[in-house]
Design a protein around this nucleic acid. Structure first.
Lengths: 118, 118
DNA sequence: CGTCAATATCGACAGTCATCGATGTCTGCG
DNA sequence: CGCAGACATCGATGACTGTCGATATTGACG
């Protein structure tokens, strides 16, 4: 199951104070897991390449050359991104098509702004 | 010098296409450096604790207890955050006061949204 | 100057991670 | 069935990282 982050939502009444209570240990752990998946130059480029590819999806063979790494390594990074809930994998025939999960990065950005702003 | 990320700005005419060209290797490297500093549960909590502390600043002794780690370890994490340009350090007398850099996280969030959205 | 307290730095150790080549798995095709 | 190609998994290896105790540094104070 993807390690998606749960925004501790409940909509928070309305505009929460600029700085509320410090983030909980569990929330920090969850957010860190997602950020760790993002905190690698190769994975950032893969994410970007998939997003920029026509149709919003790309297969492994489209990505191996641009990043200049071996196929097993690219496959490994893609798995990390899928496990983090940032990419989806759709196997059609022999090819595996990867696409970015629509709202995932907005969620990360929102948590950063909401929880750590000053 | 802090490894701040340069938004490759130039204001991009106006509303850039939803998905432009893939991120460059250098930009990916820079963004990954910042994200790596964020991708640790302890550092996220430290950042949050500093932001939530009165006056928006806190010294090491305020932070050691809440995270439950040794003083050298907390000091190390704070150094990582300062080097990443996410915290400032202000030594006043015997105490070192840390504060979050106002726009730093917004910049990270903006790059995530701009470069990787779909 | 000597002591104490708050931090930073150092050295070591264990755990994690990125990468690769080799190999396994599955699909399409003849 | 048998082969070829796309992709995933495995095992190994070198590099990096989080953590600690010990120690150095720095400022306040008597």
């Amino acid at each position: 199951m993807p390690t998606a982050l749960h925004p501790t939502a409940e909509a928070q009444a309305c505009c929460a104070p600029l700085v509320a209570a410090p983030i909980s240990a569990q929330d920090a752990e969850a957010l860190a897991r997602t950020l760790k998946a993002l905190a690698d130059p190769t994975r950032l480029r893969l994410l970007s390449l998939v997003a920029a590819h026509e149709g919003g999806e790309a297969c492994v063979c489209d990505l191996t050359d641009p990043v200049g790494l071996s196929q097993p390594t690219v496959s490994h990074h893609l798995k990390v991104l899928v496990d983090a809930g940032l990419l989806t994998r759709d196997k059609r025939g022999v090819w595996a098509y990867y696409a970015v999960v629509p709202g995932a990065l907005d969620a990360v950005a929102a948590v950063l702004d909401t929880q750590l702003r000053r």
